[in-house]
Amino acid sequence: MCGVLRAEPLWVETFTGLRMDRFVKLVKVVRERGGNGPGGGRPWCLPLEDRVLLVAVYYRTDLTMRQLAPLFGVSPATVCRVIQRLRPLLAIEPASRPADAVERLWISPGRDLLPGEEEDNAEHRRVRARVEHAFARMKHYKILRDCRQRGTGLHHAVQAVAHMHNLAPAA
């Protein structure tokens, strides 16, 4: 099986957004962290550079493992193993926090609503409320249907539904 993507400058820059020299440094870091494995066992069918590219393409695009497999000429299971193996090695090391970071308050600026956006949001909230109430009613009817039995089963089910109905407006 022959794949299309290889760790060549055109593909690296297109799919990762990194220049080739940065990508080479990234591969070096992964190799130092043990990206080639302990040395024993079956060898990988892709070189380390292609495996790093595979993980970068996976995270950078919304392609699934089944879609990535033919691009690299491997099976979806291999794509999954490569991602599981290299994901922790590509993680950024935690940055050291300054001593006064605990007392610092970080505020991220929000964005202003566009004209008409508030009305759209209000309409979406109304529709969502109607859908949620419909689901709640279906659950109540299911409880009633499931509790049709002799004795006081129906009575207890009706009490439970009434109790849930009374709790719903309070929430």
Rank of each mutant, 00 (worst) to 15 (best):
residue 1 M to T: 12
residue 2 C to A: 12
residue 10 L to T: 10
residue 11 W to M: 12
residue 17 G to A: 02
residue 18 L to M: 09
residue 18 L to V: 03
residue 19 R to N: 12
residue 19 R to P: 07
residue 24 V to A: 08
residue 24 V to N: 04
residue 30 V to R: 05
residue 30 V to T: 07
residue 32 E to S: 07
residue 32 E to V: 00
residue 34 G to S: 02
residue 37 G to V: 07
residue 47 P to G: 13
residue 50 D to G: 04
residue 52 V to A: 11
residue 55 V to W: 01
residue 57 V to H: 02
residue 58 Y to A: 10
residue 59 Y to R: 11
residue 60 R to W: 09
residue 61 T to L: 05
residue 61 T to E: 08
residue 68 L to Y: 03
residue 68 L to F: 03
residue 69 A to E: 06
residue 70 P to R: 00
residue 73 G to V: 06
residue 78 T to N: 05
residue 80 C to H: 15
residue 82 V to H: 06
residue 84 Q to P: 01
residue 86 L to V: 00
residue 87 R to S: 13
residue 91 A to P: 04
residue 92 I to A: 12
residue 92 I to N: 08
residue 93 E to I: 10
residue 94 P to K: 01
residue 96 S to A: 07
residue 96 S to D: 08
residue 102 V to A: 11
residue 104 R to I: 03
residue 107 I to L: 14
residue 107 I to E: 11
residue 107 I to P: 06
residue 108 S to G: 12
residue 109 P to F: 02
residue 112 D to M: 13
residue 117 E to C: 02
residue 120 D to Y: 15
residue 122 A to E: 14
residue 128 R to V: 11
residue 133 H to W: 09
residue 142 K to D: 06
residue 146 D to V: 01
residue 147 C to V: 05
residue 148 R to V: 12
residue 152 T to Q: 15
residue 158 V to M: 05
residue 158 V to A: 07
residue 161 V to W: 02
residue 164 M to W: 06
residue 164 M to L: 12
residue 169 P to H: 12
